[in-house]
Design a protein around this nucleic acid. Structure first.
Length: 458
RNA sequence: GGCUAGGUGGCAGAGUGGUUAUGCAGCGGCCUGCAAAGCCGCGGACAUCGGUUCGAUUCCGUUCCUAGCCUCCA
């Protein structure tokens, strides 16, 4: 069984083979660091973290996720707050990495920053001018989309139709409305770099072309991002890189995740429904968010609501419940492999719902069997599956004990349970049930079992 | 208007040309002092209209609906 991925350019699921045997290069468009990441930003981060984990099982992966730290939105934030640009970007780079870490996202191998690659961008723009793919106009350098016969093939658009149907105000110096800025002049108060065209700053798209070739080479195996980047961002990257490299393929697989909506509506600042990961993780455990993000197939739209989170929480309750109280030998744990059907589901274009279903099947088998050796083996395999998808990373007891800031601490709960146990052994079930009801009112559910009474926060 | 992706049981969400998704919820049973957790079983679905086929939820086309993109955006 191989890994299969849906390629946006070819429009179908295709067996993945790296260009160079045994080695894979992957580039993900990362954050523009002018604010905290919202839950929609987290979806590609989590999904492609999972893809990276999956690829590492088979290949030597080099995974780059860039940081856009030169952008007009950052400039705007600087003007609004009066803080230097570098301070803003540093702050949000750290916040981004902390927030993603809370969701179980492992760091990429390389995290290149746009500001560290301006020289390469300038070199690329010079080449684009030389090759006739770009032109200068009023201090700007623009990419000439009509010079690229393949323009539009990634997003499946007909450039001529788009020109005819254009309804946006077009800058007068553009030859075609879709021509995009490679370089633009900066005023003295804006960040800028010296260039053959005067002091200025790069357009957005050129940075990814420059950073991917700098770190991963001319042809990368996988280029990933959100669906909304297909046009214009990735279409433009593709056009630039293809022109500069004389038609050499830029990315062999284009992989895009679907959009996330909030309560069935688009997340937008004007609606005030932007959910920041930074805020969510204050009250919701990262694993719950991660599972919620993986509960739908990555190319499908995902609607985010309180129910999505409740659902994810209950799923984790079930998974943790299956492994709770099982003492797994270290050797068994470390030698366990995730179930084959589980891995196959993931390798089939990252079918996380099917993979998760496989984990639940494993959980049921585990709950069913009495044999201690078998139980250890199944539990270890379930945890190995969890390791691969970045779930079930806590101790089950910690999971059920819940966050520390509950309104009762563990000692108080244990003391009440001891009282209840005395009442039960005296046959005073009325008193025992009263204690249980009181605990339930405060969010504590108890379970009497053969090995004593367990509790959890619900 | 154009492009792309979808419309699956109460909800979420996979998949398949003829046979169980899975989780939650519901119903019945087992277990339990009673619960909870767990186990067993049950019901309930493939938007619409046509076509292809021995047979379609699955393939093809129509209609309706939804989302995203077409402008900064994961």
């Amino acid at each position: 069984m191989s890994i299969y991925l849906h390629d946006t350019l070819r429009g179908e699921k295709i067996e993945f083979e790296p260009l160079k045997a045994g080695e894979v290069t992957m580039y993900l468009c990362g954050p523009t660091v002018y604010n905290y990441a919202h839950i929609g930003n987290a979806r590609p981060a989590v999904i492609f973290d999972l893809l990276a984990r999956l690829l590492r099982r088979r290949y030597k992966l080099t995974f780059a996720r860039n940081i856009t730290d030169v952008d007009d939105k950052i400039n705007q934030a600087s003007i609004e707050t009066g803080k230097p640009i570098g301070e803003i970007s540093e702050r949000f780079i750290k916040a981004y990495n902390d927030d993603m870490a809370a969701l179980g996202v492992l760091p990429p191998d390389i995290e290149p920053r746009a500001t560290q690659h301006v020289d390469e961008m300038i070199e690329m723009i010079v080449k684009l001018l030389d090759k006739g793919c770009a032109y200068k106009a009023e201090g700007h350098v623009l990419f000439d989309v009509l010079a690229d016969p393949g323009y539009g093939k990634l997003s499946k658009r007909d450039i001529r139709e788009m020109i005819a149907g254009a309804r946006v105000e077009v800058a007068p110096y553009k030859k075609a409305p879709q021509d995009f800025v490679l370089w633009k002049p900066s005023t003295p108060e804006l960040p800028g770099w010296e260039s053959p065209w005067g002091r200025g700053r790069p357009g957005w798209h050129i940075e990814c072309s420059a950073m991917s070739v700098a770190h991963l080479g001319r042809t990368i195996d996988i280029h990933a991002g959100g669906q909304d980047l297909v046009f214009p961002h990735h279409e433009n990257e593709l056009a630039q890189s293809t022109c500069i490299h004389d038609g050499e393929p830029f990315a062999r697989f284009w992989v895009h995740n679907g959009f996330l909506s909030i309560d069935s509506t688009k997340m937008s600042k004007s609606l005030g429904n932007v959910l920041l990961v930074h805020d969510l993780i204050k009250t919701i455990r990262g694993e719950v968010i991660r599972l919620a993000l993986l509960s739908a197939h990555y190319r499908q739209p995902l609607d985010w609501s309180d129910e999505t989170l409740d659902d994810a929480h209950r799923k984790l309750d079930r998974l943790y419940g299956a492994v709770r109280g099982i003492d797994i030998d270290d050797a068994v744990r470390s030698s366990a492999r995730p179930p084959a059907t589980f891995v196959e589901a993931l390798e089939d274009d990252l079918n996380t719902p099917r993979a998760l279903a496989g984990m639940f099947d494993r959980a049921r088998a585990l709950n069913k069997t009495e044999d201690p050796v078998e139980r250890q083996k199944l539990a270890a395999e379930l945890l190995a599956a969890g390791d691969l998808v970045g779930l079930m990373q806590s101790d089950p007891e910690e999971w059920f004990a819940g966050p520390d800031e509950g309104d009762m601490d563990a000692a108080e709960i244990e003391s009440l349970l001891a009282q209840r146990e005395r009442a039960r052994s005296n046959g005073d079930y009325a008193a025992a049930d009263k204690i249980r009801d009181n605990l339930a009112d405060r969010g504590i559910t108890i379970e009497d079992g053969s090995s004593g009474t367990r509790w959890r926060r619900s």
